[in-house]
Design a protein around this nucleic acid. Structure first.
Lengths: 170, 170
DNA sequence: GCTGTTTATCTTGAAGTCAAGATAATTGAG
DNA sequence: CTCAATTATCTTGACTTCAAGATAAACAGC
C-alpha cells in the first residue's frame, strides 16, 4: 500500500497548529482528536436506528442496560447511573420519562426501603429486544467497509487505549 | 506478549449480551463501544486542564478554532459552527457568553452586512495561547503510558475508521 | 432595476444534563 | 439501644443544546 491516505479533518487541524504554533508538539491531537471525532460521527449513525424505533440514544441505553442484566430485568437506579456514567439526578429524570412511556416500572425494594427497583415492562422488553437487533445490524453495516483483520487490530489497540484510560478511574 | 489483557467495561457488556442474546453477533459493539467509552473518559481528562484556566470545553473549542485560523484571529459564525459540528443557535449563544467574558469581540463584516466577524480579543488570545500549551502537555501525559510505536499504529487505524465514517458526511 | 431564492444570523421553546443540597433509611461503634 | 456517619434517591436551579422558525441582506435571472 503506497498511496497516501486522504487528509481528514484532524490532519487539517494539525497542519493549522503546526503553522501557528510550531513550538508545540501537537502530535497527540492526532489519535485523541480522531477518537473524539469518530465518537461524534458514530453517535449520529447510531441515532438514526434508534429513531426508527421512536427512541432516543439515552432511552436505548437505559433499556439495554436492564435487558443485558437478564431476567427479571430489574436494577436499582444506583446500578444504572453508575453503569451509564451519569449523575443520580439525571437518572431520576430519565426514569420518570421511561415510566411515563410505559417501558419501565418502579417498585419498592423489599430489602431496603431507601432504594427502588426499576424493571422493564413487557412493552419495554419487547421494544428493546427488537431495537437491539436493529442496532447490532446497524453497527455491522457501519463497520462493513473495514476488513475483518483490520477491525481486529483496531479493536486490539482501542482496548489498549481504554485500558490506559480506565486505570485512572480505579 | 502472552498474558491475557484484563477485561474492560466493554468486555463485560459483550459477555452479558452473549448470555442474554446468544442469537446476536454483538462483536461490532467491541470497537464501537470502546471508541465511545474512550471519548467519554478522554473528555473528563481534558476538562481537568480546561478548568485550570477557568474555561469549559466549549469555550476552549471556540477560542482554539479562532486561534488556529491565524492572525487576525477572525472568523464568521458560520465558519465556526460548521467547524465545531454545532447548530447556529448554539453558536449564537456561545458567542454571547464569550463576548461577555471579554475573550472575543464581534464586528460587522464590511463586505456582507448579513454576517458578523468574530475576533479574539487580546485577553482571549493570551488565554488561548497559554491554555493550548497546557492542553497539549495534558494530552502528552494522557498518552504517555503508550509506546510510540503502538501509538502510531493506533493512530493509523483510527484514521482508517475516521475515513470510513467521514465519507458518509460527503 | 425587480423579485424570488438563497444565505447568515438570531430568537424561541423544549429537552437533557449536572452540581449541590434535601430527605429518608440503613449501618456501625460504643 | 442510640446516634453519628453513610448510602440511596429525589429536588432544585442553572446551563447547554437543538430544531424550527423569524429576520434581514445578498444574489441571480430576467
Amino acid at each position: 500500500m503506497e498511496t497516501k491516505k486522504q487528509p481528514d479533518a484532524v490532519d487539517d487541524i494539525l497542519a493549522q497548529w503546526k503553522r501557528e504554533r510550531p513550538d508545540l508538539d501537537a502530535s497527540p491531537m492526532g489519535p485523541i482528536g480522531r477518537v473524539r471525532r469518530c465518537a461524534a460521527l458514530l453517535q449520529r449513525r447510531l441515532d438514526e436506528t434508534f429513531a426508527e424505533f421512536g427512541m432516543t440514544s439515552w432511552e436505548f441505553d437505559v433499556l439495554a442496560t436492564l435487558r443485558r442484566a437478564g431476567a427479571p430485568h430489574c436494577l436499582a437506579p444506583t446500578a444504572l447511573f453508575s453503569a451509564l456514567m451519569i449523575t443520580s439526578g439525571t437518572m431520576t429524570h430519565r426514569l420518570q420519562r421511561l415510566e411515563a412511556s410505559g417501558w419501565v416500572a418502579r417498585h419498592p425494594n423489599p430489602n431496603d426501603a431507601r432504594s427502588m427497583l426499576v424493571q422493564l415492562t413487557d412493552a419495554g422488553l419487547a421494544l428493546i429486544n427488537r431495537a437491539v437487533e436493529a442496532h447490532v445490524e446497524n453497527e455491522h453495516r457501519i463497520l462493513a467497509p473495514i476488513e475483518a483483520g483490520d477491525l481486529a487490530v483496531l479493536n486490539e489497540y482501542l482496548a489498549m487505549l481504554l485500558g490506559v484510560l480506565e486505570v485512572r478511574e480505579e
